[in-house]
């Protein structure tokens, strides 16, 4: 937090970093948001992550099971709703990471296809 009343002095004393835009390197400071930004990674379709935080109520299959596209995958209670999730495509389950009763945060790896 910049509490310096003669504003700017605190900023001016920080070491500069480099920002590359259109082939040009600029000497400047980073914001915390920029510094902590997540590097994007291509999502792996075989990994199913929770899109909401909640409690797992029901899991239909176990590791090793073969599943059909559209079959019930699990019921996740989130936002006061029992949300049903269906398999996005057919395949064999490599690993099931959740069981009924588990509380999962958003973006939690729940199961993985082979």
């Amino acid at each position: 937090m910049d509490n310096n009343k003669e504003s700017g002095n605190e900023l001016k004393n920080r070491p500069l970093k480099t920002l590359m835009i259109h082939g040009e390197q600029y000497k400047t400071l980073y914001t915390n948001k920029f510094e902590n930004r997540k590097t994007w990674a291509k999502p792996d379709a075989r990994k199913i992550f929770s899109i909401l935080p909640g409690t797992v109520l029901k899991v239909s299959h176990n590791a090793g099971d073969t599943v059909e596209k559209g079959e019930l995958m699990m019921v996740l209670e989130a936002m006061k709703m029992q949300n049903t999730y269906y398999y996005p495509f057919s395949g064999k389950i490599k690993e099931m990471y959740v069981k009924p009763g588990d509380k999962v945060p958003k973006g939690f790896l729940m199961l993985e296809y082979e």
């Binding site: 700017g8 900023l11 001016k12 920002l19 600029y26 400047t28 400071l29 980073y30 914001t31 920029f34």
Partner: peptide
């Protein structure tokens, strides 16, 4: 503000 993120 060029001082921060080159003012983008």
């Amino acid at each position: 503000q060029p001082l921060v993120l080159a003012g983008v």
